[in-house]
């Protein structure tokens, strides 16, 4: 009963992707000017769109260290939301707790209407996840992997296969689908993981470092795909170290340092006139003056 409903809903979402895409394109380019694929100005999502992800007071301690110290986030429908922070700031921990992979010590995560930790069944159906540094079943081939994920998420045989093919085409994975995932490069693994996260057409995508090790061409393809998805009403939360990329792709940003959110809001609000990178370094504690490394400038020969 439940499963059938889910499948129907997801098919409907897929259709609406195409429909909305067409509509958006009509609205955007009434003039015969050729579309510029390099940087299509993303229609800024209104800040009053419905909230898709609401995180309140999320906390996690490992032994004595506090990894995440009560963070709050609000992500709205249609946004591509960047989650940035220096190494060890608690990005992966936070994202794992938001996606139901790591149990938080406190706080709540609500996806749509459903709490990830209280009613995981409904919440996880709406979630697509790409975690960082987690394995796949790498003795399966890429095609088997995608089919496996599709069926686990309740898709039927035909849908799982046809969507695997569609995603493989969109992410330039076609040539690799018959090889075992164990033979893939890191970039390929990221791509097949992204496809696996998308296969059940979730309402919210949570991607941890989705472009690490991915070549520029594939990154551009993946970004186009995410933009189309967001335009159609999907929502994306992604973490990255690449400030240029976040600045180019995201509508809203949160900066997490030492387990706490230091800045959150639309891209313009957060960067406040300077570049995101400068702002980020400033928030993360600024550049420390390089001292005590004088020997480094006295070359040995």
């Amino acid at each position: 009963m439940k499963k059938g409903g889910g499948t129907k809903k997801s098919t409907a979402t897929k259709k609406s992707v195409a429909a909305t895409q067409g509509a958006t394109q009509q609205r955007e380019s009434p003039a015969p000017a050729p579309p510029v694929p390099a940087s299509p100005p993303p229609p800024a999502p209104r800040r009053d769109a419905p909230v898709v992800l609401r995180v309140e007071g999320l906390r996690k301690r490992f032994g004595r260290t506090t990894a995440v110290d009560g963070i709050d986030l609000t992500v709205r429908r249609g946004e591509i939301y960047g989650f940035v922070g220096p190494n060890g700031a608690g990005k992966t921990t936070s994202l794992s707790m938001m996606t139901g992979l790591l149990r938080p010590d406190g706080g709540s995560v609500v996806v749509g209407e459903d709490d990830v930790w209280r009613s995981p069944e409904e919440a996880k159906r709406a979630l697509g996840v790409l975690p960082d540094r987690m394995r796949l079943f790498d003795r399966l081939t890429g095609a088997q992997m995608l089919y496996y994920c599709g069926v686990l998420h309740g898709l039927d045989r035909h849908t799982a296969r046809s969507r695997s093919d569609d995603l493989a085409r969109a992410l330039a994975l076609e040539g690799a689908l018959d090889r075992p995932v164990a033979d893939y490069s890191i970039g390929m693994i990221k791509k097949v993981s992204l496809a696996a996260a998308l296969i059940h057409s979730p309402r919210l995508l949570v991607l941890d470092e989705p472009f690490e090790g991915v070549d520029p061409v594939s990154t551009a393809q993946a970004i186009d795909l995410l933009r189309a998805y967001a335009r159609a009403g999907g929502t994306v939360v992604l973490s990255s170290h690449n400030m240029d990329l976040v600045e180019r792709v995201c509508d809203a940003v949160a900066v997490i340092v030492g387990g706490a959110i230091l800045a959150e809001g639309s891209l313009d609000e957060v960067r406040a006139g300077s570049s995101l990178e400068e702002r980020f370094v400033e928030l993360a504690g600024g550049r420390t003056a390089v001292e005590g490394l004088e020997w480094l400038t006295t070359f040995s020969d």
């Binding site: 992979l101 996880k124 159906r125 987690m134 394995r135 079943f137 994920c149 686990l152 696996a196």
Partner: peptide
């Protein structure tokens, strides 16, 4: 034996 690959089962709420 699955090691971290078991996240797929957790995320899909199998």
């Amino acid at each position: 034996y699955d090691h971290t690959a078991v996240w797929l089962h957790v995320a899909a709420h199998v």
